[in-house]
């Protein structure tokens, strides 16, 4: 039900936009306008640190996650209620994910970080699906910063644990020595490619999804009476987008787990 009403508002929104654009004569609503950054408060710290719609959504995400956790764990029951059940389900999911990949003491230590990361991305992705909301995960700056922090952190972790043995990660074992000059650069590039594939995956998925939603929204407005045809498709597409939002947060988190495992166990 909630889904249907959301789609309804999205459709209405597109409709009014089109009408407005027509009324103002020439004010265009481009395909990618939904990803535009609006600066609310200009802050200049030598670099642009303005409080924008993206920052606002991030703050909203953090507030909502905090509320979710506080309300869910407000009355700690042995037999959880609905809210507590939801919170515990997310906890168990991340704990299991870490247990399956990292395992042992490392899993316990990495839990707070992976859990925050997963919740932040999940809520960010899902909040972005609310009509008029901004999706901060659809910007590669945001996803790449996350990936870069993970990449640097994981590399430092490996260096601290294994010291110079960490570099054996780039030299596959059981390979004749004359192949090393070829294989080592391959390993290094495939290692450096990690943060890029990690960030591009999330950003491209979110951006593509939202752009497709926009395209179909325009179809509905453009087709007038026959708009119900793309409307039906859009309902299905919205369902798919909700799946993608959850899936991409999950994939990001599980890949982080795998990288942590690689740093701790090397291979």
């Amino acid at each position: 039900m909630a889904l249907a009403s959301e789609v309804g508002t999205a459709v209405e929104a597109t409709g009014t936009h089109a009408a407005e654009a027509a009324a103002h004569g020439g004010e265009k609503h481009g395909l990618l306008d939904q990803f535009k950054i609006d600066r609310f408060v200009d802050i200049d710290l030598g670099f642009d640190a303005s409080f924008s719609n993206s920052s606002a959504m991030m703050v909203a995400t953090v507030v909502l996650i905090s509320l979710f956790m506080i309300v869910g764990l407000g009355r700690r029951r042995l037999i959880p209620g609905r809210m507590q059940g939801m919170v515990e389900a997310t906890y168990e999911m991340v704990a299991r994910m870490l247990g399956d990949t990292v395992g042992g003491k490392g899993a316990k230590r990495a839990f707070p970080m992976v859990f925050s990361l997963f919740m932040f991305l999940l809520f960010g992705n899902l909040l972005g699906l609310i009509p008029y909301a901004f999706t901060f995960t659809s910007h590669i700056v945001v996803t790449f910063m996350f990936a870069a922090v993970i990449f640097i952190g994981v590399t430092l972790l490996g260096l601290i644990i294994h010291r110079h043995h960490f570099f054996s990660y780039f030299a596959p074992s059981g390979v004749p020595i004359f192949l090393m000059p070829v294989l080592v650069p391959i390993e290094i590039i495939s290692y450096i490619a990690r943060p890029i594939s990690l960030s591009v995956r999330l950003f491209a998925n979110m951006m593509a999804g939202h752009t497709i939603l926009h395209v179909f929204g325009t179809f509905i407005a453009g087709l007038a009476f026959f708009g119900f045809l793309p409307f039906g498709f859009m309902v299905a597409l919205y369902g798919l987008e909700i799946l993608v939002a959850c899936l991409q947060a999950y994939v990001f988190a599980i890949l982080t787990c795998l990288y942590i495992r690689d740093a701790i166990h090397l291979h």
Binding site: A193, R194, I196, S197, R201
Partner: peptide
């Protein structure tokens, strides 16, 4: 994405 990222790097 995996393929493209490695090529880009």
């Amino acid at each position: 994405v995996e393929m493209a990222a490695a090529l880009a790097v």
